[in-house]
Design a protein around this nucleic acid. Structure first.
Length: 568
RNA sequence: UGGGGCGUAGCCAAGCGGAAAGGCACCGGGUUUUGGUCCCGGCAUGCGGAGGUUCGAAUCCUCCCGCCCCAGCCA
């Protein structure tokens, strides 16, 4: 990452800067990230987290709270709270002692509801949900007032108290704000602010059987916390007048709400509802399946917090609907890992090579650079011997044009080791499959170099057969085959586009011996292949499992593809 | 056909009346003991469209077109 790169500006940052200049909120900057604990955080949340916490970091004295919007006990669970806390910390953000819950404010919210009733600005409606819907009108037709709309204040108070006391069944009454049933903004047509829900809440237990609606809780929660800039996504834009109406009716502090467009990523889905479906239907292992765009999934796959933060910064913040290419996310990871990942050799699809002129009982240790991008990473010794494994794809019996890997009669370099030349191909007579390659090496090329001006263009990775450690390697592809799985044709839904080959498991991999000590903390570059990390759930010291975080760019694959195209 | 938003390259996105930033992707070339990295070059006579204002318009005005959100006792 270049140090001179400056963070690009965005309209929210500009607004905050203006507010500071004009001394609105006494120059304070106080944001918050307000997730509902009803699922796991995903890359879209990361955008919001980086925005909110980033703003607080960027401005002198800025603060960002973490607040769980837990107003619906039916969907929310403690497990999600825990995972969200872990994920945000993992990204590298902290909220100090400012961890809040909307449920912290249930008493205050109830008091405010009473106040609204007393002011004649709220009433208990006893129509059914269906009736309320009918009375709301449509996009083009105004709504009608509920027959209960003009109950006396005392009656409303009494009914609301009895709602709270648990005297009524779910759905029999609601508390509504008395605004305007003819408003062109449907959110202003007497929105429901309390509903009866005889449900156990993860924090308040059974204290309440009425729960505030999000609209009633959200703006006031921001107000209570003294939030200056309430940043949220576009779909809440039409709710802003409502939040302002509440805050004005209550006569309390009013934050500034700013809306931005949520992130969409191609070849995946980003919505807690759909991700939950994938988990429940066993389309993936769990929320942290490496194919999931969840933060826990990306973490398990090998993503670094830094790469995600850089990504969040590069995609920018604006108000237009967008669909970001996942290639950008992958680029950010490669960029980060290129500087930090230790290079090791691992053969994913092994084919045995026997070096016929190398003494049978000999073995030697060769020095290998750990990271050419970082001299401080030093070197390590790796064992070499007569029999080694190379990648099956690094040999072609009938090499195509521009192929400069191993082929009959061809000479290649074994990285850090020797030049070898292929002399003979051994096949299984039954299947025709190549089983072994007989090669000779040039003893003068130790370390992988000679000064005789010989041109050896291909360089292969390898692992000494007798020293190799077995490992399982999991290769991941996009979860969906279609760029936008939500762009559905008649009778189909996003399931239709699930990629059946999104996970490929290789069980016969051979990795260099030092990798038995591989730790989840480290990401490795398997030379010439990609970046890999030890799987945090399934890997064991005697049964290593690696996940591919992202492949290396592969310009040979591109050449080959265009060659194939030429032939057609 | 109510209200609220949004249209700048294949994908993001700056720009806010004075010569269209940047990143990704893509295409060339160079370096290379990773076909990686890195380096160099290319990539919008054009800003949804049409008019208008202006010496000058992506930026201001008018009209038109397209896309997104809102009719949960979800958030």
């Amino acid at each position: 990452m270049s140090a001179v790169e400056t963070k690009s500006s965005n309209f929210i940052k500009t607004r905050v800067e203006e507010d500071i200049k004009t001394n609105k909120y006494e120059g304070r900057v106080h944001t918050r990230f307000p997730p509902e604990p009803n699922g796991y955080l995903h890359i879209g949340h990361a955008k919001s987290i980086c925005l909110n916490f980033g703003l607080a970091e960027e401005f002198e004295g800025g603060l960002c709270n973490l607040r769980f919007d837990d107003t619906n006990p039916i969907k929310e669970e403690e497990e999600y709270v825990k995972s969200m806390i872990e994920d945000i910390h993992w990204l590298g953000f902290d909220w100090g002692d400012r961890l809040y819950y909307a449920s912290d404010y249930f008493d205050q919210l109830y008091e405010w509801a009473i106040q609204l009733i007393k002011d004649g600005k709220a009433y208990v409606d006893s129509m059914s949900a269906d009736q309320i819907r009918e009375f709301r009108g449509t996009l083009t037709q105004p709504g009608k007032e509920s027959p209960y709309r003009n109950r006396r204040v005392e009656e409303n108070i009494e009914l609301f108290e009895r709602m709270r006391a648990g005297e009524f069944e779910d759905g029999t009454h609601v508390l509504r704000a008395k605004i305007d049933m003819t408003s062109p903004n449907l959110n202003m047509r007497d929105p429901v602010i309390y509903r009866i829900l005889h449900a156990h809440h993860h924090r308040t237990g059974d204290k309440w059987c009425i729960y505030p609606m999000y609209d009633w809780a959200h703006g006031q929660s921001d107000s209570i916390e003294g939030i200056t800039h309430s940043i949220c996504t576009l779909e809440f834009e039409a709710h802003r007048p409502l939040y302002e109406w509440f805050l004005e009716a209550l006569g309390v502090y009013q934050p500034e709400q700013i809306e931005f467009a949520r992130l969409n990523l191609n070849y995946t889905v980003i919505s807690k509802r759909k991700l939950l479906q994938l988990v429940q239907e066993d389309k993936v292992d769990d929320w942290d399946d490496p194919r999931m765009p969840t933060l826990s999934g990306l973490r398990r796959k090998g993503y670094t917090p830094q790469s995600i933060r850089v990504f969040a910064d590069r995609i920018g913040v604006a108000k237009s609907d967008n669909m970001v290419e996942i290639a950008l996310l992958e680029h950010c990871l490669r960029e980060d890992l290129n500087y930090s990942a230790l290079r090791v050799m691992a053969v994913l699809n092994p084919i045995k090579v026997i070096i016929t002129n190398y003494p049978e009982d000999k073995e030697e240790d060769l020095e290998a650079v750990n990271n050419p991008e970082d001299e401080d990473a030093g070197t390590r010794m790796i064992p070499f011997s007569r029999e080694i494994y190379i990648e099956r794809d690094d040999f072609r019996e009938d090499p195509p044009r521009k192929y400069f890997r191993l082929a009959p009669g061809a000479e290649v370099r074994l990285k850090h080791a020797y030049y070898i030349t292929c002399e003979k191909v051994i096949k299984d007579p039954a299947s025709g499959e190549i089983t072994e390659l007989y090669c000779t090496y040039d003893p003068k090329s130790r370390g992988g170099w000679t000064d005789d001006g010989r041109k050896v263009k291909g360089t292969l990775h390898w692992v000494s057969a007798q020293h190799a450690v077995n490992a399982e390697v999991r290769l991941y592809e996009h979860l969906f085959l279609k760029e936008n799985p939500d762009d559905i044709k008649e009778g189909k839904d996003f399931h239709f586009y699930l990629n059946p080959d999104s996970l490929k498991v290789l069980k016969q991999c051979k990795v260099e011996p030092g990798l038995v000590h591989a730790s989840v903390q480290n990401r490795y570059q398997f030379l010439r292949q990609g970046y890999f990390v030890v799987d945090s759930k399934d890997s064991k010291p005697d049964a290593l499992v690696f996940n591919r975080a992202v492949s290396l760019r592969d310009s040979w694959a591109r050449i080959e593809r265009s060659q194939n195209l030429d032939q057609k």
